[in-house]
């Protein structure tokens, strides 16, 4: 098994994934017969895999006896579901009314410029994914952005680079990662 490092690595990835799929199965066992179980299942699945890959969605369809188009309809309706692999840090900028009028749009533009990606995309190094959100319920602190589950308040476009740099290496990154985001 451990003849070549590369091979062992692949085994690990595959093994990891099969562990994750088992976890998904256990979740499905619990939710299959629950009415309204689809959204919780999708949320948990996204928690397990970090995003919702096609094969995971199809597995959910099969077990919950729903069509792929129906499940896709739900997934594509809610902005918190993602079907693409996310970066290590999910950067979400609030586009709710309060944030928007207080400069949320400029913050978003600054991030886009800085990371050289658009909303919904991930940086090539796999570090950042950029998304917008409706409201984090922190309108008094607008404009707000979140990196994984850390809230940054009263963000100014000029400060964006500093914030992101903290995650590139520093402590904050580790802390956010510890909090459970893959």
């Amino acid at each position: 098994m451990n003849k070549s490092k590369g091979k062992a690595c692949m085994c690990e990835v595959a093994a990891n994934r099969s562990v994750l799929l088992k976890r998904l199965d256990a979740v499905l066992d619990e939710y299959v017969s629950k009415p309204g179980g689809l959204i919780p299942v999708l949320q948990i699945a996204q928690g397990i895999f970090g995003y919702l890959p096609e094969d995971v969605l199809k597995q959910i369809c099969l077990r919950m006896n729903k069509s792929y188009s129906e499940v896709a309809g739900v997934v594509s309706f809610y902005s918190f579901f993602s079907t693409t692999k996310r970066g290590r840090y999910l950067v979400r900028v609030c586009m709710g009314t309060a944030c928007y009028v207080r400069g949320g749009k400029q913050v978003l533009d600054a991030i886009k410029q800085h990371l050289k990606i658009d909303v919904g995309e991930t940086t090539p190094d796999g570090k950042f994914t950029l998304e917008t959100a409706r409201c984090f319920g922190a309108c008094g602190l607008a404009p707000v952005m979140m990196v994984n589950d850390v809230v940054h308040q009263r963000v100014k476009a000029a400060r964006v680079q500093d914030i992101l740099d903290q995650y590139r290496q520093g402590e904050k990154g580790k802390r956010a990662a510890r909090k459970g985001w893959k």
């Binding site: 729903k66 069509s67 188009s69 129906e70 896709a72 309809g73 594509s76 309706f77």
Partner: peptide
């Protein structure tokens, strides 16, 4: 169930 509303 081939067709459903997609996106929002």
């Amino acid at each position: 169930g081939a067709i459903f509303p997609q996106f929002r």
